[in-house]
Structures are given as structure tokens and as C-alpha cells.
């Protein structure tokens, strides 16, 4: 169970499609809270682009590493080996690459060669391909999108996942752009299509609205881990509730720590 925290200028924010951002708290405070509630890992996504804010993010990573004692991944804006090095040296356990890796796949190889595959998460934003011309609906495949889902690439998602793993990605963070923000549940067909073709852990993301959706991601989608953001930040559900729901559905999970300080 992996809570995801979008950060900008050192704060956790919540918004829809990168607009109407609402402050959701301090990254260290939220990280500690999720740790105490039983989160297995954390993902921080830097959703800003300006270089000033990048420096703030490095500082944030250092702070998180000093206070939060579970593994965490940092993504968003990792464009070069040097960016990855900076985040890993600041204390991140893994970095996640997305747009830059599609544009220059060798980036995955470079980070894996220096730090090992276990440090490289390949984040993929995939969207169902619609045959608009003849109005025939979904053609049964998914396309990779960049820039937070705004830019289509023409690249088949399953082909890209396979390639990314060959290049050394140690984990796949798979987001359905059709479901992201909808609260309608994961695109389970997408999750299953990816988990059956790769032998590295797959984290399902995009669309979680209820605790049952998390269970579905593992049981039906075959995901190794599930990621969610908004259902946790404002106390709607606690990570511990998600763990309880999964355990009740027969999924082996590390239970929430009942002795939390």
C-alpha cells in the first residue's frame, strides 16, 4: 500500500489535472503519519518544473529521509542521470522516470548501471486507444502519454513496458489516464495486461475511489502494490483501513502497526 504525495515548492498539494491545487500539508508530517498508519512505501511526485522549486525538492527529500523510516521513491522532473544521482544521494531509495525515459530510453540503463535496477522505477501513463474515425471505440490497446497525460506518443504501452524492463527498470508505476481522478477504480484490464508481460513488481495507479478498488488492483489486476493519493490526504480513509480491507479479502499484507506512537 503506497500513498502518493504530489509536491510543489516543498508542500504536498492536491488538485485536479494540475489545476486548482489545494495545500494538503507538510511532506515530512504526512510521511510520518502514513508510516505510523502502516504505509509500506511512499511516492513523492514533484509536479513543478521551475529550477528554484527543484532545489526545494532536494531539500524536502533530505528532510523526508531524515525522519521517515520506510522506503520512498521520488519522481517528476528526473530528466538526467545527474538528476537521479542528486535525489538518491539526498536520501531517496528509488527514482521514478517518465517523460525523459520515453524520449531517451538509455536514461533507464544509465541509472540502473550506476545504482542498480532496484533504484529505477519506470512510471507509465497509459490511455486506451480509441478508433475515432470509424467510431469503433476502444481498439484493445493502450497508448503512452507524456507530460502528465497531455501529450500522446503513438507508442504502445505494452511494448514500452517490456522495453523499459529490458533496459533495467526494476519496477513499473502504471497509471491509467482514463481513470486518473475519476474515482471509478483502476483500469483492471490495463493492470492485468502489464502484470502478465513483465516479471518485475507493478504498482497500479489511477482511479482509486474506494477501498474495494485497492483490493481489485491486487486480486483482479495482479498488481504487486497499489498506489493512491487523494483518498488518504484529507482523512477520508486511513492507510490502516486499506490494509484491513485487503487482509479481509485474503491479500497478504503487512498489517498496520497497532502500537503507533
Amino acid at each position: 500500500m503506497i500513498p502518493c504525495l504530489d509536491v510543489t515548492a516543498g508542500r504536498v498539494v492536491k488538485g485536479t489535472n494540475f489545476v486548482d491545487l489545494v495545500d494538503a500539508g507538510d511532506p515530512v508530517e504526512l510521511g510520518c503519519r502514513y508510516d505510523a498508519e502502516g504505509a509500506d512505501e511512499l511516492v513523492f511526485l514533484d509536479i513543478t518544473a521551475s529550477s528554484d522549486d527543484r532545489a526545494t525538492t532536494v531539500e524536502m527529500v533530505r528532510n523526508v529521509a531524515d525522519h521517515v523510516y520506510i522506503p520512498f521513491t521520488v519522481g517528476g522532473g528526473i530528466r538526467t542521470l545527474e538528476n537521479a544521482r542528486t535525489m538518491l544521494r539526498a536520501g531517496a531509495d528509488k527514482v521514478s522516470v517518465n517523460t525523459a525515459a520515453v524520449q531517451r530510453p538509455e536514461l533507464i540503463e544509465e541509472i540502473a548501471a550506476e545504482f542498480g535496477s532496484q533504484c529505477v522505477v519506470c512510471a507509465i501513463d497509459a490511455k486506451r486507444r480509441i478508433e475515432e474515425e470509424r467510431d469503433r471505440g476502444w481498439d484493445g490497446t493502450w497508448e503512452v502519454y507524456l507530460h502528465g497525460g497531455r501529450t500522446p506518443t503513438g507508442i504502445d504501452a505494452i511494448e514500452w513496458v517490456t522495453r523499459a524492463v529490458e533496459l533495467g527498470a526494476g519496477e513499473i508505476l502504471l497509471t491509467s489516464m482514463d481513470r486518473d481522478g475519476t474515482r471509478a477504480g483502476f483500469d483492471l484490464e490495463l493492470t492485468a495486461a502489464v502484470t502478465t508481460v513483465v516479471d518485475v513488481p507493478v504498482i497500479a495507479s489511477g482511479g482509486v475511489g474506494t477501498l474495494d478498488h485497492l483490493v481489485d488492483g491486487v486480486v483482479e489486476g495482479g498488481a504487486d502494490a497499489v498506489l493512491a493519493a487523494s483518498i488518504f490526504h484529507f482523512g477520508e480513509h486511513r492507510v490502516a483501513d486499506a490494509k484491513t480491507a485487503m487482509a479481509a479479502a485474503g491479500v497478504t499484507v503487512r498489517p498496520a502497526d497497532s502500537s503507533a506512537d
Binding site: 533530505r62 529521509a65 531524515d66 525522519h67 523510516y69 544521494r89
Partner: peptide, 11 residues
Amino acid sequence: IGNLHSAQKAL
């Protein structure tokens, strides 16, 4: 090598 701060900070 790599990141050794976590172990030091935790101790």
C-alpha cells in the same frame, strides 16, 4: 557508496 544517511540518522 550510495546513501548512508538513513542508518546514521536512525541510530
